[in-house]
């Protein structure tokens, strides 16, 4: 298990971004993937999560079936820009701040509803397992009351 803080994630993102510029599309793609994880760790300070789970989450998030192709492309663009310039560096670009807020909300929602977070006694201390996005999971609402 690893614990990455936001700064480390930013570092990773930035490093990946530089690599992206140098090595072309693959690097850019990787950078954009990392943004979801970065936003996640930012929203859940101290989150305990396996690295493989984090990577899987990032991957699922960008490929998620609920994102249209256009949204995916625009998120990739924004992600790549954040990777290069940092969130502060891009938030002045019209529309970007709103998009980032939107993505942050989607990241939080997708993670909470596709992990065991809500079933843990103490999710700030316990390891949270990301379960993966399964659109056919019969009952995706852990709070629903039936009888």
């Amino acid at each position: 298990m690893i614990r990455l803080n936001r700064r480390q994630m930013m570092g990773l993102g930035a490093a990946a971004a530089v690599g992206g510029v140098l090595t072309g599309a693959w690097g850019l793609h990787r950078t954009s993937q990392r943004l979801a994880g970065e936003l996640l760790l930012d929203a859940f300070p101290g989150l305990q999560i396996e690295e493989a789970d984090l990577r899987q989450f990032e991957q699922d998030f960008m490929q998620a079936y609920w994102l249209t192709q256009m949204e995916r492309i625009s998120l990739r663009g924004i992600s790549a820009a954040v990777g290069l310039l940092g969130a502060g560096g891009v938030s002045w670009i019209p529309g970007v701040r709103g998009r980032l807020d939107h993505m942050r909300r989607a990241v939080i929602t997708v993670f909470l509803t596709n992990s065991d977070y809500f079933t843990l006694e103490n999710p700030t201390v316990d390891t949270v397992y990301y379960l993966g996005v399964d659109k056919n999971r019969p009952c995706g609402n852990p709070f629903a009351r039936f009888d």
Binding site: F44, P45, D101, R104, R105, I108, L112, T113, N141
Partner: peptide, 16 residues
């Protein structure tokens, strides 16, 4: 609505 189609809240711990 009993589903989070538009998303949960983003403030820590106030998700629902």
């Amino acid at each position: 609505e009993n589903h989070w189609g538009t998303g949960l809240r983003t403030e820590y711990g106030r998700w629902r």
